[in-house]
């Protein structure tokens, strides 16, 4: 794994985690209350659609990141990282956890040993 690729993917993942997470928080904590109690669906429509497309970008970048830091595929960690973009606030928590557990060691050049995929 080239270090510059690793760095690129990690920065991309962080940016998308914060952008997607913020958009989802706006959707859930502002737009949906406006839709339910304010009877105005327009903000939720716009932000919801925007979050949908941001999540596509997020899932691609996040998957590339899990590969770059050699997280086990089909492990709970990888699944949580990929799904975090659809659950409010979770992206922020998961980003910190992934940084501590995988990104920092990967940037320091430590390679976790290969593990079986499903077992």
């Amino acid at each position: 794994m080239r270090p510059d690729w690793l760095r690129l993917v990690v920065h991309g993942y962080r940016a998308m985690a914060y952008v997607t997470g913020t958009m989802l928080c706006i959707l859930v904590f502002v737009c949906i209350p406006v839709q339910v109690w304010g009877h105005n669906a327009a903000p939720a429509d716009v932000v919801g659609t925007l979050h949908g497309f941001l999540y596509i970008v997020y899932i691609i970048v996040a998957f590339a990141m899990t590969r770059a830091v050699r997280m086990k595929i089909a492990s709970p960690g990888t699944i949580i990282v990929l799904l975090a973009g659809t659950i409010p606030v979770l992206t922020f928590v998961v980003e910190r956890w992934v940084t501590r557990r995988y990104i920092t060691p990967a940037l320091a050049g430590v390679t976790p040993s290969e593990q079986p995929v499903l077992r």
Binding site: I56, I60, R67, I73, L118
Partner: peptide, 23 residues
Amino acid sequence: EWPIFVIFGVVFWAKTIVDEWRH
């Protein structure tokens, strides 16, 4: 959006096989 998620799912499934094959 849904077809894009389908493509992603297929890629993910294929990667699990490739990983295990290499292992």
